[in-house]
Design a protein around this nucleic acid. Structure first.
Lengths: 255, 255
DNA sequence: CAGTGGTCTAGACCACGTT
DNA sequence: ACGTGGTCTAGACCACTGA
């Protein structure tokens, strides 16, 4: 018979577990329902808790589950689509920008990586505007907007030294410059401690990092680093102003 | 003195480890260099291997490390920027599309989720075109492009039944329809078995899933689900045709 | 074949939210 | 105080790569 090898391709246990759980979630659980605790699930499937957790981790990464320490594991709602402005719309600042809410504003020297993107002197001071974005009552993104002082020389000297009021001042000045274009990239990251706090996640939680460069006549006038919860968010880019709804409706299965 | 609590805020070991390793990577290692193996690193830091691995996992997630079974852990090069076409450019098909290389083409019924997005009968057959994208000698993305047969009725009956040749036929027909717009979303996922194989990763590896709907006069004519390696890729959206280079140059530290 | 990372176990203790 | 998920340990064995 030789080495027939059977068909047991040696699929890892946690992978198989994930599949089984995923199907169970589809058929036996409603959104928001809490699962049995990890120790019981592990026992029920006859695996070690660490193995069970490996499966849960993947499902959380895929946005199927939500785990909270001290509370339990619940079935997550479908990911929420968060629009990332593609064109002039959503240009940082302006009163029409309802998505982002300014939280704070400080002045500091930009981190090296940001300074390089701004192609400015690494020592020159920048305004750092902190903004957050909420949807459905949940904070889904935290942003740091770096604005070189040289970009907004007109900034009133009497403006508040920090806080939301100053943030709005900076944004207003920035807005007056107009916008010639932007440049955006998306990559996977893990939440820094401060972002994690804003997003109500543990440090290191997976996030989608959107880096945007804003161009005006003068060159690069600002850089935004926005951190989105990767577990609950789907970033949408409306390149054609097309429908945004049907993708969500698809998830609501006919009842 | 009461509960002074010291300053030990109980930062998890793996988090601290990650920081230390990250700094070591910056100062003591060159891109491509192999690290000591996990057992030795764990011993050197006085932690269990599992804890050390938790730190390595995060660093790999952030694109700082690359781990390969049987080989070792190496310092990863900076993430490569992969352009995701924003406008008409890069419209599926056309000989000018150099980024994507057709691999195969089959015919099947679309998965439920895709059928819903195509707003078509879930039973109706679609062409499924498999394409991959490579940069710097590495496959960075695997795509499944779903084209309802009704979108390309003119497809020659004598076309090859499968394989790259047929893929090109479908793309050619699709291209003839023209493109009215598109609609794109990005989210975090984990690699399916087949995608993992194409991307040379283990199943479950973190990926960025880009879902694109293509619109023509007739409505939604095709849907693409592209899976990018999250560890090595940074998706770029050139909303203004602006410079793509400086971001990469920033990474090459002066020598 | 030896050496690597990947999987898995059976425990322990901790931090947190709720009660 | 209790129950939850989060961290950590010290082992074991497996799958894969390359010499």
């Amino acid at each position: 018979m030789g080495t027939t090898q059977l068909e047991t391709v040696q699929e890892p246990k946690y992978w198989h577990l994930k599949t089984v759980l995923s199907e169970a979630l589809d058929s036996d659980f409603a959104v928001g329902e809490v699962l049995p605790n990890e120790r019981e699930l592990a026992a029920r499937f006859g695996v070690a808790r660490a193995t069970l957790r490996q499966a849960l981790e993947q499902l959380e990464l895929e946005g199927r589950l939500q785990r909270r320490r001290g509370v339990g594991t619940t079935v997550a709602p479908p990911r929420v689509g968060v629009a990332v402005a593609t064109a002039q719309q959503g240009w940082a600042g302006g009163d029409s920008d309802e998505a982002w809410q300014p939280v704070e504003c400080t002045t500091a020297t930009a981190p090296a990586s940001v300074a390089a993107v701004l192609d400015m002197d690494a020592e020159a001071p920048v305004h750092v505007v902190r903004r957050i974005q909420a949807t459905h009552g949940q904070t889904v993104a935290a942003e740091l907007l770096y604005v070189p002082q040289s970009s907004v020389p007109e900034l009133s000297a009497i403006a508040a030294p920090s806080g939301p009021a100053r943030a709005r001042s900076v944004l207003r000045e920035l807005h007056r410059l107009g916008l010639d274009g932007q440049d955006r990239s998306v990559e996977l990251g893990s939440a820094r401690v401060d972002d994690a706090k804003e997003l109500d996640r543990l440090p290191g939680a997976p996030v989608l990092v959107v880096t945007t460069r804003y161009f005006a006549a003068a060159g690069t006038v600002a850089v935004s680093v926005a951190t989105y919860r990767a577990d609950t968010c789907r970033l949408t880019f409306g390149d054609s102003g097309a429908l945004e709804i049907s993708h969500e409706e698809q998830e609501r299965k006919a009842s």
